[in-house]
Computed example of a mutant assay.
Amino acid sequence: MSDIPSSRLPASTDRFAGKRVVITGATSGIGRAGAERLAAEGADLVLTGTDSHRLDDLRSSFPDALVVANDASSPTTGSDLLAAMGSRGIDGLWLNAGFAATAPVAEVDAASFDALMATNVRGPFLQLAALATRLNTGSSVLVTSSTSVYEAAPTTAVYAAGKAALIAAAQTWASELAVRGIRVNTLVPGPIDTGFRDFMPPDTRAEFEETVLGSVPLGRVGTPREAAAVAAFLLSDDASYVTASRYAVDGGLTHR
Rank of each mutant, 00 (worst) to 15 (best):
S148F: 00
L177T: 03
P154E: 09
P154G: 08
A170N: 09
T147E: 12
V179P: 08
L177K: 01
S145A: 15
A168D: 11
A165H: 05
I167G: 07
A165C: 03
A168V: 12
G162Y: 03
V149P: 00
A169K: 03
I167V: 15
A169E: 10
G181P: 11
A169V: 07
G162I: 02
A174I: 10
W173D: 05
S148Y: 00
S148W: 01
E151I: 00
A174R: 09
T147D: 10
Q171V: 10
V158M: 10
E176Q: 12
A178Y: 04
A160N: 02
Y150P: 00
E151P: 02
A161F: 01
L177D: 04
T172I: 14
A152I: 08
S148P: 00
A169Q: 13
A165Q: 03
T155Q: 07
Y159W: 07
R180V: 04
A153W: 11
A178G: 15
A178V: 11
A152G: 09
A164M: 04
Y159G: 04
T172N: 15
A153E: 15
L166Y: 06
T172E: 14
G181Y: 12
S145K: 05
W173E: 01
V158H: 04
A174H: 08
A164W: 08
A169Y: 11
S145D: 07
S148G: 04
A174S: 12
G181M: 13
T155M: 05
A165Y: 00
R180D: 12
A165W: 06
T156S: 15
W173N: 06
L177C: 00
P154A: 11
P154H: 04
A168P: 09
L166C: 01
A153P: 00
A178E: 12
S175G: 11
S148E: 09
Q171G: 14
R180I: 05
S145C: 06
I167Y: 01
S145E: 03
A169F: 08
E176C: 03
K163G: 01
K163T: 08
A157R: 02
S175A: 10
T155K: 05
E151H: 00
G162P: 02
Q171P: 07
S146H: 03
A157T: 11
A161C: 01
S148V: 06
T172Q: 15
S146G: 01
T155H: 07
P154Q: 08
A170E: 02
V149R: 08
R180G: 04
L166W: 05
V179R: 14
P154I: 05
Y159S: 05
A161M: 07
L166V: 06
A161T: 10
V158L: 07
A160K: 00
Y150E: 14
A161R: 02
A153C: 06
A164V: 07
Y150V: 10
T147N: 06
A168S: 15
K163D: 10
S175C: 10
P154L: 09
R180Y: 02
A153I: 13
R180C: 03
G162R: 06
K163M: 10
G181I: 11
I167P: 07
T156K: 11
V179K: 15
Y150G: 08
A153Y: 09
A178K: 12
S175V: 15
V158P: 05
